[in-house]
Amino acid sequence: MLEELIQNYYDRIQYYFIQRVKDRYIAEDLTQEVFLKVVLALPKRQPDHFESWLFTIAKFTLYDHYRRKKISVGVEDLATLASDDLPFNQKAISDTALIDAINRLSDKLRRPLILSIRGYSYQEIAAIIGVKESTIKSRIFQARQKIKKQVKE
C-alpha cells in the first residue's frame, strides 16, 4: 500500500514544492519529509480524502520550511515579478540593485514581500508567518516603500 501511494503521489508532491521553493534539492527534502509524516500518521489515521489530506501535509510542511529558513530573493524570483509587485519600473534599475535592496530589508519586511513575489496570497503569507492578514498587507506596503527609497538613492 505504501509503495503504491508513493508511486501515485511522489512526483506531484515534489512538483508542488519545486514550483514554490525553486530548488530541486530542497523540494526533494520536503517531499521526503511529507512522506515520512504520512508513514507515521497512517497507522493512526485513515483519511477519507487522502489526496487533500496529503496536500494539506505538504502545505504545512512548506510553511514550516519558511518559518525555519531566512529567505532571500534571487534573479529567478525577479523573472516572476509582476509589474504591480513593486511601485516603480523594475527595468529602470539593475537586477542586482533590486536584489540588494530587497535583501537589505529587515526579515519582518523581506519575508512577506518575497512570499508575495513567489505568488502566495496575503492569507497564505499570514498563515506562514503567523500574523494577521492586515499586518501582512502593511508589511508588504512598507517593504515596497523602503525599496523604492533605496533604489532612488
Rank of each mutant, 00 (worst) to 15 (best):
R45A: 04
P47K: 07
D48W: 00
E51Y: 09
E51K: 15
W53Q: 00
T56Y: 12
T56Q: 12
I57E: 08
K59L: 07
F60Q: 12
F60G: 00
L62H: 04
Y63A: 01
H65E: 04
Y66S: 00
R67K: 15
R67G: 02
R68E: 09
K69F: 09
K70E: 07
K70D: 06
I71M: 09
I71K: 08
S72E: 11
V73Y: 09
G74R: 10
V75K: 15
E76L: 07
E76M: 06
A79D: 13
A79L: 14
S83N: 10
D84T: 11
D85S: 14
D85T: 02
L86A: 06
P87R: 06
F88N: 08
N89R: 10
Q90I: 12
Q90Y: 01
A92Y: 03
I93R: 06
S94F: 00
A97W: 12
I99Q: 04
A101N: 10
I102F: 15
I102H: 14
K108Y: 11
L113A: 06
I114R: 09
S116C: 11
S116I: 01
I117L: 15
Y120A: 01
Y122M: 09
Y122G: 03
E124S: 12
I125E: 02
A126C: 08
A126S: 13
A127L: 11
A127H: 08
I128Y: 07
I129V: 15
G130I: 03
G130K: 02
S134E: 14
T135A: 13
T135K: 13
K137R: 13
R139M: 04
I140C: 11
I140F: 11
F141T: 13
Q142I: 04
